[in-house]
Simulated scan of single mutants.
Amino acid sequence: MDYMPISFLIPLVALFVVYRQMKTRPTAKRGLLYTAAVMSVVGVVTGGLIDARHLALSIGLLLVEAVIAVALGVWRATTVRVWLDESGTAWSKATGWTLLAWLVSIAVRVGLYFAGQALGLTSSPTGILLFVGLTIGAQAYLVAQRGRALSSAGRRPGTVVR
């Protein structure tokens, strides 16, 4: 399989997602969740996640990467500002801490890639696609949950939830 188009698109999608998070957006929008789901599914369906020569080690590293991806998404979600406007609509906007958490997420993913290489595992770009899909999905889901919690709790407009 030719991974070149995927290798080119993953950083572009990730940059676009980070750029959009830095803008003020309603938390009720689900586009980011759908994007994350598509990325995760494509990452799994296209294969190359498991190295058949080192099956147990490869599966173990994949599970560690998945857990770390979700954990980083949870962490970044806590750095996003969520509030209600005067009409009761929940909004969100990433902060400088979110950007820093994204940089840490990228560094961790690169570290996991090199750890796999050092262990002798072959990898494909689809592993990155799955990682990015999981981490974006976790963050988007939790930010949306915070927005729904604000709206349903009957909080006053202008309330900020961290």
Rank of each mutant, 00 (worst) to 15 (best):
Y3D: 06
I6L: 15
I6N: 00
S7P: 00
S7N: 04
F8C: 08
L9K: 06
I10P: 09
I10G: 04
P11N: 12
P11C: 11
L12P: 01
L12M: 11
A14N: 01
F16Q: 13
Y19Q: 08
R20K: 13
Q21F: 15
Q21S: 08
R25K: 11
P26C: 00
T27A: 14
A28E: 09
A28I: 14
A28T: 13
R30D: 12
G31N: 09
L32R: 09
L33G: 14
Y34A: 04
Y34I: 13
Y34M: 04
S40H: 06
V41Q: 00
V42L: 15
V42W: 06
G43F: 09
V44F: 15
T46A: 14
G47I: 01
G47F: 01
L49Y: 01
I50P: 04
R53N: 15
L55H: 13
V64Y: 05
V70W: 03
A71H: 02
A71D: 00
A71T: 05
V74M: 10
V74R: 13
A77L: 04
A77G: 02
T78Q: 11
T78K: 11
T78S: 15
T79P: 02
V82F: 04
D85G: 05
E86N: 11
S87H: 07
G88V: 14
T89H: 08
A90E: 04
A90D: 07
W91Q: 05
K93Y: 00
A94T: 02
A94M: 04
T98L: 04
L99C: 00
L99A: 13
L100H: 05
L100R: 10
A101L: 02
W102S: 02
V104G: 03
S105C: 14
I106P: 00
I106H: 04
A107E: 03
V108Q: 08
R109L: 13
V110H: 01
L112G: 12
Y113S: 10
L119Y: 07
T122F: 13
S124N: 06
T126P: 00
T126V: 00
G127C: 09
L129C: 12
L129N: 05
L130V: 11
V132Q: 11
G133R: 07
G133T: 12
T135S: 15
I136Y: 07
G137V: 09
A140D: 05
Y141E: 01
L142A: 03
V143I: 13
V143Y: 02
Q145R: 15
G147H: 07
G147Y: 05
S151V: 02
S151Y: 01
S151L: 03
S152F: 13
S152I: 11
S152A: 10
A153S: 15
A153D: 12
R155C: 12
V160W: 13
V161T: 02
V161W: 14
V161C: 05
